[in-house]
C-alpha cells in the first residue's frame, strides 16, 4: 500500500453565528486516510459536511475538533489544525492544491495567467508557466479564443475547466477536489477524468467529492461515507 499523506482523525466543524445566536453543525467525527497516488472519495447526502471537510483541511474553515495529520515532502508530520498561518500558506504554495466550486481571480486577468498563477507564485518564468497553462487548457478542449480573456464571463463549464487547470498545473502532492466535473458535458468530463488518472499515476494524493456516483466508482481507491451531523442539541451536550 502507498504511504499515507493525510490522516484525518475525529474532525468536526460547527459554525457559531453570533448575530442569529445560532450554532450550525457541519461535519461530525470524520476519520479517514489519504495515500500518495490514490484517490479517496467523500460521499454522503447533501448537507453531510463533505465540502466542510475539504475546507477544514485547507484552513478556509477553522476546524472545531479533531486532528489533521499531514506528512510533508520532507517527511515531517504536522497537524494542520495547529499549524501556523505561514506554514499553511507555504503548504498551499508548494504542496496542497484545492479546486473549489467557485473561481476567484483578478478582474480582467487573462485566462492563461489565471491558470499559470500557481507556477508564477513558485517563481517559474512567465513564458514557461503560460506554455504549461496552454497545454492543460488544450487538453481540456477550452477553445483557444478564450485564453486571452478573463474567465469572468465564462459559462459554468468553461470556468470549471479553468479552475481545474489551475489546480492541476503545479502538480500538488495533495489535491482537494470539490465536484470538479459537475457542470461538464460527458465528453469534457471524460477528458478531465483522464487528467485526474494521469496525476494519480504521477503520485498525487487526492481527496474528492464527485457529483456522479459513476465517477466515484471509476476513480476512487477508497470511499468514505459521511453521515449528516447530529442535531444542535446533541452537539451541545457533547461540547458541554
Amino acid at each position: 500500500m502507498n504511504p499515507p499523506i493525510l490522516q484525518v482523525e475525529g474532525y468536526g466543524k460547527h459554525f457559531q453565528l453570533h448575530e442569529q445566536n445560532k450554532l450550525i453543525p457541519s461535519s461530525h467525527n470524520v476519520s479517514f486516510t489519504v495515500r500518495a497516488g490514490e484517490l479517496t472519495a467523500l460521499i454522503g447526502p447533501t448537507g453531510a459536511g463533505k465540502s466542510s471537510v475539504l475546507k477544514g483541511i485547507y484552513r478556509t474553515y477553522l476546524p472545531s475538533a479533531g486532528r489533521i495529520l499531514y506528512r510533508d515532502a520532507m517527511g515531517h508530520e504536522l497537524d494542520l489544525v495547529l499549524a501556523s498561518e505561514h506554514q499553511i500558506l507555504e503548504l498551499r504554495r508548494r504542496e496542497i492544491g484545492f479546486v473549489t466550486q467557485f473561481l476567484h481571480c483578478l478582474p480582467r486577468q487573462a485566462t492563461l495567467d489565471v491558470v499559470a498563477q500557481p507556477l508564477f507564485a513558485l517563481g517559474v518564468s512567465r513564458d514557461v508557466a503560460r506554455q504549461r497553462a496552454a497545454e492543460l487548457l488544450s487538453a481540456m478542449k477550452l477553445p483557444e479564443r478564450l485564453w486571452s480573456v478573463s474567465p469572468a464571463t465564462f459559462s459554468g463549464g468553461e470556468r470549471q475547466r479553468v479552475n481545474l487547470a489551475r489546480g492541476f498545473i503545479a502538480k500538488p502532492r495533495l489535491l482537494l477536489l470539490d465536484e470538479p466535473t459537475a457542470s461538464l458535458d460527458p465528453a469534457t468530463a471524460e477528458r478531465v477524468i483522464g487528467l485526474i488518472e494521469g496525476l494519480k499515476a504521477e503520485g498525487t494524493a487526492m481527496l474528492a467529492i464527485f457529483h456522479h456516483p459513476e465517477t466515484t466508482r471509476r476513480l476512487a481507491d477508497q470511499v468514505v461515507e459521511l453521515d449528516p451531523p447530529p442535531a444542535v442539541e446533541e452537539l451541545l451536550e457533547e461540547i458541554a
Binding site: H18, E19, K55, T60, Y61
Partner: peptide, 21 residues
C-alpha cells in the same frame, strides 16, 4: 486575524460576520 479566505468564509467574531455578510 487569520488567513484571508478563512476570515471571509468562516469569520469568528460577530463584527467580522456582519462585515462579511
Amino acid at each position: 486575524t487569520g488567513l484571508t479566505d478563512q476570515i471571509l468564509e468562516d469569520p469568528q467574531h460577530a463584527y467580522t460576520q456582519r462585515l462579511v455578510a
